[in-house]
Design a protein around this nucleic acid. Structure first.
Lengths: 146, 146
DNA sequence: GTGTTCTTTTGAATGAGTCAAAAGAAGGGG
DNA sequence: CCCCTTCTTTTGACTCATTCAAAAGAACAC
């Protein structure tokens, strides 16, 4: 009856194929690891995904992530003072809370409508296609510790 | 009568002293260069400021900029995929347009009131003190060239 | 199966930024 | 005006995330 199948809401192999990328154990492992640990860095993903496989190099992770980002399967976040982080939540236009102490990241839905501040008053002639909002502050743990 | 004095709207020596930092030719040169070329990288500042002095190392620029940022004289901008950039416009809460092709940066005043999107709907327990908005797109030159 | 094409490994290289210790200036007290 | 303490700057090595190039290896179409 294959009841367990429905636990996976989307199949990474299918999504890889749909994006025109080949399905390999490494890629699936990276994507599943990223699903389980959103906002991971490339190095964290390498360590965690390697645990499920016999072998996986850091470079393979970098190359895979670049492919995923290029095909819209993954979004790259680059907070100041921290290595790049990645997430599989790409469908919606959400933003991020960044803890300045420990680097923790949390998702935030748009505060004002679907795409806040998308159109600046004076765009200086730029063709704007994305607005990125990042909130800086302290996460609950660091606030209590401080 | 010292009429020319009023041409400078603010004196960097005075502002350095007010911030508790010593006044040195190098620091003043870096600040004046940054005034003349907003959104410069550390390396650009080093090259330009060195031209006004007998000698200036890149490290001195890094150290000075870190001091300035720490004392609120300068603001640091870290666009993805580009070295950090700096600006002396620190008094207001303005945001930035970034060209994804050539890296050009332009200032934007807040689109919605003084501090748009400052309070997310669900802050996940974070103590939020800053919201940073970055618009990505193409500058006029790159749009016309593409 | 077999061959072509895409992935991954291997190993070295880049580039922004940081660190530590010694040498050098600023500015206050005598 | 000079000395001393403290802050700045230099020097030179170093870290870290990320990228590059070429060879070896796996997917998938036929």
């Amino acid at each position: 009856m294959l009841v367990g199948m429905t636990l996976l809401e989307h199949s990474w192999p299918d999504r890889l194929r749909a994006a025109g990328l080949r399905v390999t154990p490494r890629r699936v492992a990276v994507l599943e690891t990223l699903d389980a640990h959103p906002h991971s860095s490339a190095d964290e993903l390498h360590t965690r995904a390697e645990a499920r496989l016999d072998h996986l190099t850091r470079q393979a992770v970098y190359i895979s992530l670049a492919d995923f980002v290029g095909h819209g399967l993954v979004r790259k976040i680059e907070p100041p003072g921290s290595p790049a982080r990645y997430e599989t939540r790409t469908a919606d236009n959400h933003h991020h809370l960044v803890c300045e102490q420990c680097g923790a990241i949390a998702d935030v839905d748009c505060a004002v409508g679907a795409a806040p501040c998308l159109t600046p008053d004076d765009d200086a002639g730029f063709f704007v296609h994305t607005a990125d909002v990042t909130y800086f502050g302290l996460c609950p743990q660091c606030r209590d510790a401080g």
